[in-house]
Amino acid sequence: MIEITDLHKSYVMGTNTLHVLKGIDFTVNEGELVAIMGSSGSGKSTLLNILGMLDEADQGTYTLDGTLIHNLNEKIAARYRNKFLGFVFQSFNLISYKNALENVAMPLYYQGVKRNERNEKAMHYLEKVGLAEWATHLPNELSGGQKQRVAIARALASEPKVLLADEPTGALDSTTSYEVMEIIQSINDEGKTILIVTHEDDIAHMCKRIVNLKDGIIIDDSIISQVRVKATSHV
C-alpha cells in the first residue's frame, strides 16, 4: 500500500539546515495498523506529513497504492489527499462553526458529492463512531473524546485507502484514549490501513506493528502482538 525508499527531508532554518529524515525505507501493506514511535524531534510527524502529502520530501520515492507521488502540484495533491487519505490530528482540527455532521461531510463536499447523499453518508459514519445523536452539535459542545471520534468519522467519510493519525490520543485522558483506540482497532478490523504517530507505549502496543524512529532513521521495526482494547461502554 505504502512504499517509501531512501526518504530525506531537511528544513532550512536561517543559516542552519536541520536534517530531519535521513533515509527512511519503509513499506506498509494493506490492512496493517502501524504505530510510528519516537521522541520529539525524531522526525515522526515529518514522516507522517510527507505520507499525507502535506509536505514534500527532498529526496527518495513515495508510492501510494501503486501511484508514484512525485512533483505534485497543489491541485493533484488535493485530489490525492481527498481520494487516498484520511487525517486524524492531535488537536482534532474540527471547524468550529460547523456542526458534527457538517464536519464529517466536508471531505465529501470537496469530492463533489450531492448534498443529500453527503449528509446520509456522513450520518452513517457518525453512527459508526457512536455519535449519531450528537450530529447537530457544534464541536465546542462535545468532549475531547467525542471530538476525536467526529474527526475519525470525518477521516473515514471519504473512504480513504489509508488513515493517518498524528498523536490521536495526545490530548485525551487514558479512558477516552482507549475509546478512540477501540474505534481505530475496529476500523482496522474492517481492513483499513492505519498509521498512528504516538509516543505513548500503551497506545503503540494496541497496534500490530511498531516502527521506532530516532534522529531521522528507523532504528527498530517489529511486528508485535496486538493488545485489544477491552470493550468499554461508549459514552
Binding site: G52, A78, R81, N82, P107, Y110
Partner: peptide
C-alpha cells in the same frame, strides 16, 4: 489559516 489548512488536508483544491 488553520481552517484553510484543515480544508486543504481534507482535499480542498487551491481553487476551492
Amino acid at each position: 489559516t488553520k481552517e484553510i489548512g484543515i480544508r486543504r488536508a481534507l482535499g480542498a483544491t487551491p481553487w476551492a
